[in-house]
Design a protein around this nucleic acid. Sequence first.
DNA 1: AAATCCTCCGAAACCCTTTTCGGAGAACGT
DNA 2: ACGTTCTCCGAAAAGGGTTTCGGAGGATTT
Lengths: 341, 341
Amino acid sequence: MTSQDGSGRTRTVTLRDVAQLAGVSVATASKALNGRADVRPETRRRVEEVAGRLAFTPNTLAKAMLAGQTGTVGLLTNDLVGRFSLPILMGAEDASGAGRMSVFLCDARGDAIRERYHLRALLGRRVDGIIVVGSETDPRPSLGHHVPVPVVYAYAPSDDPTDASVVPDNVRAGTLAVEHLLLTGHQRIAHISGDVTYAAAQDRARGADAALQAAGLQRVGPVRFGSWTESWGRLAAGVVLDGDPVDAILCGSDQIARGVLDTLRDRGVDVPGDVAVMGFDNWEAMVSGSRPSLTTVDMRFEAMGRRAAELLFAAIEGRPSSGIEAIEPRVVVRGSTVAGA
Amino acid sequence: MTSQDGSGRTRTVTLRDVAQLAGVSVATASKALNGRADVRPETRRRVEEVAGRLAFTPNTLAKAMLAGQTGTVGLLTNDLVGRFSLPILMGAEDASGAGRMSVFLCDARGDAIRERYHLRALLGRRVDGIIVVGSETDPRPSLGHHVPVPVVYAYAPSDDPTDASVVPDNVRAGTLAVEHLLLTGHQRIAHISGDVTYAAAQDRARGADAALQAAGLQRVGPVRFGSWTESWGRLAAGVVLDGDPVDAILCGSDQIARGVLDTLRDRGVDVPGDVAVMGFDNWEAMVSGSRPSLTTVDMRFEAMGRRAAELLFAAIEGRPSSGIEAIEPRVVVRGSTVAGA
DNA sequence: AAATCCTCCGAAACCCTTTTCGGAGAACGT
DNA sequence: ACGTTCTCCGAAAAGGGTTTCGGAGGATTT
C-alpha cells in the first residue's frame, strides 16, 4: 500500500507504480488486475506479482468518479444510545456487507440542524442512498424529494406516504401478545403501558384490544399509561392488584414488565401460576435476568434494518418502492407465561 | 443537486453546470464559491445565485483526490451489540463531527477474516485513519505497521506496545470503588465478579484489593468469579451471606449487582443500612431501575471514544503517539451505598 | 511476396474539482 | 500617445483509475 522514498515518508502505491515496475502501461495493468481479456497470461501474472509485492490497493474513489457510483450508503440516525438504532444498523450493515457496500454513520441526535448538516456531508460524499433511522415510531418529517439519491426510512416512518418506510408492526404485536395470553389460558388481562404520547404505546394497546374483542373479551381496567420505566411498572402493578382480579398483565415494554414482576414477587403472587406477565421488545438484558424469565414480543429490529437496506439497494438499482412496510413481530415464550419455559 | 434532462432521468449537478449557467469558467466558479480573491463581487454573487438555484453540492471525492485527504475515518468494531462500542462510537463521532470528518462504520463481529476484508475496504476508500474497537479489555492482535494510515485502538489495547491504545482503567476503578465504600463507613467488603478469564474482572479485583491493603484491611472471602449475569449475582450473594458477616458487596458489573440486590431483598437485608452494594459500568437501564438505585463506577466510554478520536486526529496531523492511555473512571453515588442518595 | 487476420499492448479521453500561471483589458502616470 | 500597473478571468494540469480505439507485430492465407 505504501513504499518508502528517499525522505523516509511513505507514499501511496498507485496503479502507475505497479505498471512501471511490471514494465507495462497503466491500461494493461488495469486490465490485468481486473481479469479482462486481451492480456497475455504471462503478462498478467507479472502484474499480479508486482501488485501483490507492493500491496497495491486500488483507489475506490477514483473508480467511483468514473462509475458515478460510490458503493457507499449513509445511515442517518437520531438515537444512537437507544436500543432501536443499533440492531437496525447491524441489519443494514449486514445486508450491505454482502455486496461490497460501506456505511457512513451519522448521528443527528434528534436535531434538525445537525441532520441537514449531515445530509449535505453525505451528498457531498456522493452516497448511493440513505437510510434514516428515527427514535420513535411516530412519523417524522420527510427529507423531501429534492434529495438526489434514494432514501428509506426505518423505525420512524416518513410523513410523506410516497417515501419508502419500514416500521415495526406495533398493532400486530399487541394482537400477538394477547393471542398468546389467551392460548395459555388467561382471560382477565390488564394492560400497563408507557408514555401515552408514543404511537408505539397507542398501537400496541389498539392491537391488544382488537384481539380481546375478537375473542369476545374485554380488557380489565383502563390502559394504564405512564412512563417506560421499571418504577412505573412497580407502581402500576400495585394499582392493578388492588382493582378487579386479573390473571395476566400485558406490559408496554420489557422494562415496565420488570417492575411489574418485582411488585408481584413482593406481594407473593406466583408468576405465571396466579398472574402471567408479558413485555415488548425482547431486550436481552431485561428478559433473561428477570425471575421468572420474561415472555415478550420481539419487534425484530435487525430484520427491519436488513429489509430497509434491501429496499434501498433495490431503489438504487432502479426499482424504487413507496409506502410503509411493517415488519411482522414474533412472540418469544419464556417462564413468565408458561411455567418452566 | 440534480436537474432534469430530456429523458426524465436526473443527473448530478457539477461545477461545470454552474459555471456554464453563470457564464464563467469552472475555475472562476470554483474561486467564487470558495471565497478566493480575484473575483469581482458582482461575478461572485451571480455564481452563488446559480449554485444555490441548482442546489449544487461540491463533489467531496474529487476534492479528496487532489488533497490526498478524504476527511473520513474508519471505525472497525468487533462488538456492535455490546454496550461498550456504542458510547465509544458516539464519542468518536462527536469529536469527528466538530471538524468535518465522516465515519465509516464496519462490524467485524470478532472474525479476523471479516476484519481483514473490512480493512481492505477502508484502505481502498482512502480513510485518513482508523479506530479499532475491541469487545473485551484483553489485548488484541495489532493490525500491524504495514497499514499506511494511523490506527488507534479503543477498549481492547493492541498487543503491540508501539501502537496507540485508549482503554478503561479497571484497576483504578476497583480502587475508587473500595475507597468510596471505605469513605461511606464500610470495612467488611466481599467481592462478587464475572468471568474469571476477563482482564476486566482481574484488574478490578486487583485495584480493589490494593485499596483495601492500603487501608490495612482485607477482603472478606475470596473473589467469587462466575459470569456477568444477574443470576450469578443472586446465587453468589446467597453464598456470601452464609459466610463471614459483611457490610458491603462489591460487584463486578451492574448486572451482577442487580442480582445481588434481589437476593438481599429476598432475605430482608436492608441496603444500604445493613449491606452496601456497588457495581461497575453505570449502565443506565440497570442502575436506575433497581431498588435502591445503584452506586456504580462509570468507565466513561464516551470520553474514551472522544480521546481515541483526538489521538487519531493528532496522528493524522503528524503528531503520532504510542502506548496505552487509560481513562480515569468516576464513581456515581446512588442509593445502594448512601441512604437517600 | 503480399494481403489478411489475430493477439496483445499503449495513447488518450473521461470523471470533478482545485490551483497555478499567464493574458486581456482597463485605469493610471508621464 | 505610450508604458506600466492592476484587476479579473480562463486555459491547463493534476489526482488515480477505467475504457475505447487504434496500432504494432507476428502468424496465417492466397
